[in-house]
Design a protein around this nucleic acid. Structure first.
Length: 208
DNA sequence: TTTAAGATTGACT
DNA sequence: GTCAATCTTAAAG
């Protein structure tokens, strides 16, 4: 069965929402770290002024965006790495940015790499990649295979998905205002959060 | 050849 | 609130 994030017929917005609650897993040298995805953003291709592939821009750095759905696209900005999942086809270079996770496995290693505890481990796109040891070495790999992959076997379900403007996109007209950021309402690991987190972190109760 | 800006973060005033 | 770290890309000199 094809994982939903490899199904290029699904819209990028749909994939961004369905990724919430999936586990992001990194395996390396007998060390596994993972966490549930709690915040994503959709970058919808050549018409989207905020998207790296806007206006069909294509450079060596962007090559992964032009690969098949389910490809990992790692981008480095300033001193930080960001992890994306490609969602469509070569003709439609679109992707979902994973902006935050709620830690599950390997928390001591996350704490060591970040030299922080609690929400500061993974409540931002550059923070989670540093915590999980995600680098350019992961660029272009498949998101359904180790060492860096998405799993929905342990998936959680958001009670409510909050939909807001993307972070860090000024002066881009309608693309600044577009509601293409999705997050689990009440989850403390969502980036730039002020409000009080919910006791259940915004997940629906498990059904036994 | 030089410069500026960017899907960010952390240290500092 | 300001600002620098540090790498790719595009555009100006």
């Amino acid at each position: 069965m094809l994982p939903f994030f490899k199904d290029a017929t699904l819209s990028t917005e749909e994939v961004a929402q369905r990724l919430l609650g999936c586990l992001l897993i990194k395996e390396e040298d007998n060390q596994t770290t993972s966490g549930w995805i709690v915040e994503t953003e959709a970058y919808v291709g050549i018409d989207d002024e905020a998207c790296h592939s806007f206006n069909s821009r294509r450079t060596p750095r962007l090559e992964s965006m032009y690969k098949e759905a389910g490809t990992v696209y790692i981008y480095q900005m300033h001193t930080h790495h960001m992890v994306n999942i490609v969602t469509r086809t070569q003709a439609e270079p679109q992707a979902v940015l994973i902006r935050a996770i709620e830690p599950y496995e390997g928390i001591p290693l996350l704490e060591k790499r970040r030299n922080r505890k609690g929400i500061e481990l993974t409540n931002g796109p550059g923070k989670l990649t540093k915590a999980m040891g995600i680098t350019m070495a992961d660029n272009g790999s498949a998101a359904d295979k180790a060492p860096l992959y998405i799993s929905d076997e342990m998936r959680k379900t958001p009670r409510l998905i909050e939909q807001t403007q993307r972070i860090g996109i000024p002066n881009k007209g309608q693309w600044t205002d577009a509601l293409l950021r999705y997050s689990v309402e009440g989850n403390p690991y969502v980036s730039r959060k002020k409000g009080k987190p919910m006791n259940d972190h915004g997940w629906k109760a498990m059904i036994h």
